[in-house]
């Protein structure tokens, strides 16, 4: 890759929430960056901090507190930026697609006006007529049939998939440099998901934007991403190019995630689940957060007592595991054991 500055660069971000039961560290020293035209998938289970990281980075966090870290967007510091200036970036250079399209749209405003408003807010000199024409163009581009008729309809007259198309139209309206998509297809059926993933790919190609795709679905990851960051208990535990994550994962959690997936494309004799459940963030293990569930660790003292830092595992990937060199042979042996037993 050529040495160009990344579009979004998050470094060492830590976010905490105060709750009646104590402080919860939802994001724990997270760093990742994404380049123009690239899709980074951030994957992890419920509560791993994948959404909070990006919300905090964009200044959209409601209750939480950023304890440390820096976030730059196109070289500019997002966290220190005056709110007014950040507002001008959001919706223009930096846009979001949320999980639930029904709540992302204003229910009492026509769909077309919402798209037109996205244009007008950032270009006040644009005439209303031009904004309308451009909004209809955008609706057509994202595959809303009869866009001139649909322009005047309200969100409740649209299906979930159609609403998400409208949200995507708004996200690409101003040719953004970064699109953050937070579980954009989780609320829709698979046939609609296929349509939306195609649409997002086209949107990225048209705008040349960088994309951060937050998802829990490894199938979606394999389909859209170039690079993958795997999160667990508020931390990035592994980051690598997509082929490598799936072919030779370098963290026991990634290994576990992949082998507990039921597969559509082949028969799996037995799923190998990860024992236990994700930790309560109020009470994360002192050492490696994954240690209580890690079968490779076998309760070694390094795992129990020291947080493993995110270190280069090989030229392309980083992994937060004390015994990263053992992961590959352990994963192979684990697979072998199960096949033998079956």
């Amino acid at each position: 890759m050529v040495a160009v500055a990344p579009v979004l660069d998050i470094s060492d971000l830590t976010v905490e929430f105060d709750t009646p039961e104590g402080t919860v560290r939802a994001v724990d020293h997270v760093s990742y960056s994404v380049d123009a035209g690239e899709t980074l998938a951030v994957v992890g289970e419920t509560g791993c901090g994948k959404s909070v990281t990006v919300l905090a980075a964009l200044g959209l966090l409601g209750a939480g507190r950023i304890v440390s870290g820096a976030v730059t967007f196109g070289g500019a510091d997002l966290l220190d930026m005056p709110a007014k200036k950040r507002r001008r970036l959001l919706g223009h250079d930096l846009t979001m697609v949320f999980q639930n399209p029904m709540t992302a749209l204003n229910p009492v405003m026509t769909v077309g006006r919402q798209v037109a408003e996205t244009l007008l807010v950032h270009e006040p000199k644009m005439s209303r007529g031009t904004a309308r024409d451009r909004a209809i163009e955008l609706l057509a581009m994202v595959g809303v049939p009869q866009p001139d008729v649909r322009y005047n309809q309200y969100p409740h007259e649209f299906s979930g998939g159609m609403c998400q198309r409208v949200v995507i139209a708004m996200a690409i309206a101003n040719k953004p440099r970064l699109i953050v998509a937070d579980e954009p297809t989780t609320a829709v059926d698979v046939t609609i998901q296929a349509q939306l993933l195609d649409l997002l790919r086209v949107a990225r190609e048209e705008t040349g934007a960088a994309v951060v795709m937050i998802t829990h679905d490894l199938g979606v990851v394999a389909e859209v991403a170039e690079r993958v960051a795997v999160m667990y208990a508020g931390r990035v535990v592994e980051m690598a190019p997509v082929e490598q994550i799936f072919r030779s994962p370098r963290h026991p959690y990634t290994v576990g995630l992949l082998s507990c997936l039921p597969r559509l494309d082949r028969d799996v004799s037995e799923l190998i689940p990860i024992p236990g459940a994700p930790p309560d963030l109020r009470d994360v293990a002192r050492g490696c957060p994954f240690e209580p569930r890690c079968e490779m660790s076998a309760a070694r003292s390094a795992c129990q007592n020291t947080r493993p830092p995110l270190m280069p595992a090989d030229p392309n990937s980083v992994s937060a595991c004390h015994f990263v060199d053992e992961v590959e042979s352990w994963a192979r042996a684990r697979r072998g054991n199960v096949e033998e037993a079956a």
């Binding site: 998939g161 490894l218 199938g219 979606v220 394999a222 559509l264």
Partner: peptide, 20 residues
């Protein structure tokens, strides 16, 4: 054909259904 499988670069002939 619409279900994404966890294999990067998997060649699939996707049949994309139109409409809802």
């Amino acid at each position: 054909s619409a279900v994404p499988v966890p294999v990067p670069g998997a060649r699939r002939n996707r049949i994309v259904l139109q409409g809802d």
